[in-house]
Design a protein around this nucleic acid. Sequence first.
DNA 1: GTCCCGAATGCTAACGTTCACATGCTCGTG
DNA 2: CACGAGCATGTGAACGTTAGCATTCGGGAC
Lengths: 340, 340
Amino acid sequence: MAPTARRPSMADVADRAGVSYQTVSRVLNEPEIVRPATRSRVLEAITELGYTRNRAARALKTTRSSLIGMLNDGSALFGPTETTTAIETAARRAGYSVLLTTVGAEDSAGHAVGAELLGSGADGILVVAAHEGMVPAVTAVARSTPVVVVSAVPPRTPGIQVVGVDQGLGAHLVVEHLARTGARSVVHTAGPQDWFDARARREGFEQAIALHGLDGEVVGPGDWTPRTGYDLTNALVRDGLPDAIFAANDMMAMGVLHALHEHRLRIPEDVAVVGFDNTLGAEYQVPSLTTVAQPFAELGRLALERLLCLLEERELPPGTPSTLPPRLVVRRSTRPERTH
Amino acid sequence: MAPTARRPSMADVADRAGVSYQTVSRVLNEPEIVRPATRSRVLEAITELGYTRNRAARALKTTRSSLIGMLNDGSALFGPTETTTAIETAARRAGYSVLLTTVGAEDSAGHAVGAELLGSGADGILVVAAHEGMVPAVTAVARSTPVVVVSAVPPRTPGIQVVGVDQGLGAHLVVEHLARTGARSVVHTAGPQDWFDARARREGFEQAIALHGLDGEVVGPGDWTPRTGYDLTNALVRDGLPDAIFAANDMMAMGVLHALHEHRLRIPEDVAVVGFDNTLGAEYQVPSLTTVAQPFAELGRLALERLLCLLEERELPPGTPSTLPPRLVVRRSTRPERTH
DNA sequence: GTCCCGAATGCTAACGTTCACATGCTCGTG
DNA sequence: CACGAGCATGTGAACGTTAGCATTCGGGAC
């Protein structure tokens, strides 16, 4: 915290190196066109003064902020957080910084947030936890700024690009595994239906149930938290248990397991349980949880790549997927598949 | 994505409202000094054109970016994520945006990140997940930018302010509770010792053990993940179990529980288990986990408040704490305290 | 020795905003 | 009715950078 010693500017560097500030600019932007001797003199002056380019001036002149706005959900969910980290790392590598914005429950309108995003001057927007609450903010912004949404569902607003994990496939994998391990009746404790991923999982579940001719039921919706998994399961215990419960995510599965334990039911013998996400703790549930692993980090990188192509008007490399497949991770909360 | 229709500027708004651009500026910055009639005319023009202030130009002229840099750990941990969200919400309310930077394992040097932060032009820096890896980046930045660290430990760099939860107190509460419920021997499965909070918990544990005359031992360190809690517990089962295990966080406690279950040990009868953090899932462990709740959101708000005071050269309201007390949450993984 | 060409560098203006100051207007007062 | 006080608004300059054009310099060819 120096006593307001103005940060050095290009002019300062130029003075020290005995060149004009334009040359300094060139060293930074197109190093190859300045003579090696001058260049190294300038670079030396830069390090001596600890000079860094003034981001604001640069942004003002170029009309590009090198900022990427990220719209996140306020709840500290596992998947979005992983994705966020991956995005930030990739963005930094590409010379962008990430502006974090959360849409909490309180400002559900989202309009204010949309205005905020617009005013932030971000070159592009990445929506990480896609649910209905984001829609007004996103549509407001999408008119003037490229937007990429991480979601299982194609958007209703044209011009918005989407990258997602195939939630339907995930649900299919789960149901198929349950069918193969002898389940006849399956209950899906659904996630909050204003989340696009939750909706896609439920729809995938319903399709897969029909496909395998099983006895399926959807209960809920829950809210991603263990509590709702717990409550829904208690209701099931009262009203009659299925062979298997497919929870909308690992958190809810946690509540499911807890309720079953309280009623001294055996897992998977009495009821099999499956989650979704493969959170850090899934393997260490009691018993360890069969679940669907999503490539969250890969997803983040892919979303960013897509956005950068939009920003820099590059073509997306051919063969770049917009949908990533999830992977079933079989553990001890479901019966083993027979291998013959 | 309009076809590069330049965003409207103050001059455009001024033309439309029939005033000079300076008046527009005034309406935005000091609305009270402009005549109500003119003001509403300007505001109308603003909404009609969808004008938002150009952040870069503003930053350039005022030499303040309205940006707060946040330094986060790359791992998607529960506490830091909660704190992050609270900070972002509070920052937005105060007219600041949050620039997210993560220090991953790969760029452990942190120097690059420090330079990055400096170049970002943030008015102030908030360090959320404080560990040794952050130190070089932070000390580099602290010379020219106010820094507030969320940490249990006073920093070695002078001029850096600190806000934290009293980890030592948390450990004391745990040990006291264990002592009162009949434990004589306690093992602490420590967290990664390059994290300041983990270190403070361990030291608090050692002090409290001495205070209560218990038989204490520290094993580990772990790495916050369930796996290390699991591995350390397996080793304990081999070498002799204590009456209670105090895990460095809830994640590690999860691994502890899992290992104990595998060995068919009863919790809390054979071994009591305590975690730290009170994550969303703690209540739904089997059995539900006794743990220490930290006021993560409050912590975030407090850290931001402190930083804003530094930035705006306000005095911190008298009585504002720099350390927040944690709270013991007793559940079923420890024996009940006798009440007489 | 002169000319020309290209490479290297310098100068001017502009991005959109705010600050400091200048100016015009309105109103109360002598 | 003229004057000054004070409020409302306008004007010029500057923040640090980059784009475009102008200038300088060195060297090769005639």
